[in-house]
Design a protein around this nucleic acid. Structure first.
Lengths: 382, 382
DNA sequence: CTTTGTTTGTTAGGCTGCCTAATAATATGG
DNA sequence: CCATATTATTAGGCAGCCTAACAAACAAAG
């Protein structure tokens, strides 16, 4: 875990972070954006070159005058692995520190998993083994791994026994000496929406995932809120039903809003006159998209219930923006009704739909892995 | 608003902040805690003395050796005013930057107010006028004011017209050139619990106020979460009732959980055999405290409903700790049932009861005013 | 092909803000 | 009064940034 300390001057660190953030850049660009003078840029670059962290990749001319040399994070500096341990597929990305993709893979699971199981662990092990196999010599060291899992996650100081997070290691062991971090999958997706998706440029927002399960990822001032027990955003456990005379049942909201119970209700309430009920949510959404009135009615009814959940979240944290995502939630058919309900019940909040689809989680994990990798290189905590 | 810039060196600023934070201290103490060398402490102190921000107040001996000089923030450096514009009383504190109380007052309102009214504004105006009247010459300038109000609050860039916050200024104008900040009263109370009360030493927690209205103050990593529209913690607007087949009503949770509707239910359901129903919550709590079974049943039933609301908040943000406060919520009778319900429905969260009672809000406002004052002195934003 | 103007990168030197080390100034206790 | 402990100041150094001036590379115009 511990490699050589490698302390950098403040400006060099800022330059490294900027190159990680935005990819190849010239010195004038970096100096401008970071507010550093040319001599300081010179020193910082010399420092980073010396450490083998950056490399020149040619020169660019911007109108008149001398051409500026373009630099990027050196491939040789190292790489990261991001894994999305999903319920139907395992996705893996192996990338440089500035997120140039070096290897990617998609591994279907034998059957859909409702929770984190040893079977998922096995496929993760296979995916990572394959990635290590294909690693080339000049890719530098594997600096960090982030694995996105569909459970709540606590740090080493927390009560790891109380969560299911350790299940990921039943059939998988991370390579020795490699920094390996577990992160909740919804939080990863939120990170991706923040950097690349529907929430770009927003410092504060919530990402609501709707599929077999429901969950919320909270981004507050550019930082994910994990919660003291890793349970922030576990909105499957909101009090439900909640009304005078009714007894709430723990976890009932997740079951009720989740797509399995929803589809059961749809099938039970499907009129004979509308033909065969839809087999799954994809078919339901497809029919609703074609204008089938019965399908639309169900989708809108469900959207109103999702809106009711979001109104709760908006009342508690007032995120200003809620991004809908997940296998079911990403459908643009939901948005209008959700927005209407939220506006009626709670405070103003923009509602948008995810633009990253199934890639969101692994892209967010990659992003977090790169952050970890920079910390590992510099011996920084957190 | 703008006074002379007055830039300080980093260490001097740290020393000033430390003195503001913890009151009178000696140089060795400060140097130790801030990790500053003795020469740096000397320079910082010289700088602060020069600027008239600190003053020596004697010397202290710690065992053997030379006595250490003790310093504090100079009274002459300036003062702040904190106002709690509550529903039954206006509380005011006028304090030095290190929170030595110079003047305090308590002004009852003619009658209890459900929302922020012009009448409250009038009493605030009178309270502030009286405080300015009593200000002595050597107290230095009035650097900042914070007024705690029971509405959502947005900054100048937000849509102030959409909130009721401006009502505070109907009959009151802050002294010219004085930095005046409005802050939600529940958030102020949370700040006080953080520094002095039941949440001392906790970086993340939620403060739930239960009285005529309900509200949540969210402290995340030592920072209040105000929300994008100043509506974070406005849990009076959570979806309620929320159950299949029921139609939620905006703001219904506040009415239902709030003490007015609660007492109406108590009275309606009060058996003849138990004698005259209690006139208000104080009487209800008093009787419950004496062991009256009917009163206890109602208090516990209500506590379960409060617990159901808290379970929602815990599911969304997982604060680890929830402090119960407010006129009704501060009763220790609530805690056991609330804790039981939260543990049953959601994730582990400690439940405690406020220790600051009615002073919480004004103490939090004072704290925030001091922070603002330091920023004003140094020309810093936010 | 040379000149000119523009942009990029380097060198020289200075300033700020912190540090360590040494010295001076009190205090307590035999 | 002297030994010891603690506090404060002085002297000198170093890291990390800056500005100013200069050298190098390039495009476009003559």
């Amino acid at each position: 875990m511990t490699r050589k300390p490698l302390t950098l001057t403040g400006s060099a660190l800022a330059v490294l972070r900027a190159l990680v953030e935005r990819g190849p850049s010239t010195r004038p660009q970096l100096g401008q954006d970071l507010g550093l003078s040319r001599p300081t840029m010179s020193a910082a670059m010399a420092e980073l070159m010396e450490a083998g962290l950056v490399e020149p990749i040619g020169s660019v001319h911007g109108g008149m005058g001398r051409r500026a040399v373009e630099y990027r994070v050196a491939t040789h500096a190292g790489h990261v692995i991001a894994v999305d341990a999903g319920s139907t597929h395992i996705r893996l990305r192996l990338s440089t520190l500035d997120r140039r993709l070096l290897h990617a893979s998609l591994h279907p699971l034998p059957k859909s998993q409702y929770s984190l199981t040893p079977q998922i662990s096995s496929v993760v092990a296979a995916a990572v083994a394959e990635a290590l196999e294909k690693t080339e010599a000049d890719w530098g060291p594997l600096l960090a791994m982030v694995i996105a899992i569909p459970t709540r996650v606590v740090g080493p100081e927390g009560d790891t026994a109380a969560t299911d997070q350790e299940v990921i290691f039943t059939n998988f062991a991370p390579p020795p000496q490699v920094d390996c971090t577990l992160v909740n999958n919804v939080n990863c997706a939120a990170v991706a929406e923040y950097h690349y998706g529907a929430a770009r440029g927003r410092q504060t927002f919530a990402f609501m995932q709707v599929g077999v399960k429901i969950g919320l990822g909270l981004m507050l001032n550019g930082q994910i809120l994990p919660g003291v027990n890793g349970a922030a955003g576990e909105i499957g456990h909101i009090t439900f039903p909640f009304a005078p005379g009714l007894t709430p049942v723990p976890g009932e909201a997740e079951r009720y809003i989740g797509t399995e119970a929803f589809m059961t209700r749809v099938r039970a309430d499907w009129p004979e006159s509308s033909g065969r009920p839809p087999a799954d949510t994809y078919e339901l959404l497809a029919r609703a998209g074609e204008g089938d009135a019965t399908a639309l009615r169900h989708v809108e009814g469900h959207a109103a219930e999702i809106g009711a959940v979001i109104a709760i979240c908006v009342s508690v944290i007032d995120p200003g923006l809620v991004v809908l995502g997940g296998g079911y939630g990403a459908s643009p058919l939901l948005r209008p009704k959700v927005e209407e309900v939220v506006r009626h019940l709670a405070f103003p909040a923009e509602i948008t739909t995810s633009t990253l689809a199934a890639e969101a989680t692994v892209l967010g994990a990659e992003r977090l892995a790169v952050d970890r990798a920079v910390c590992v290189l510099l011996g920084l905590p957190a």
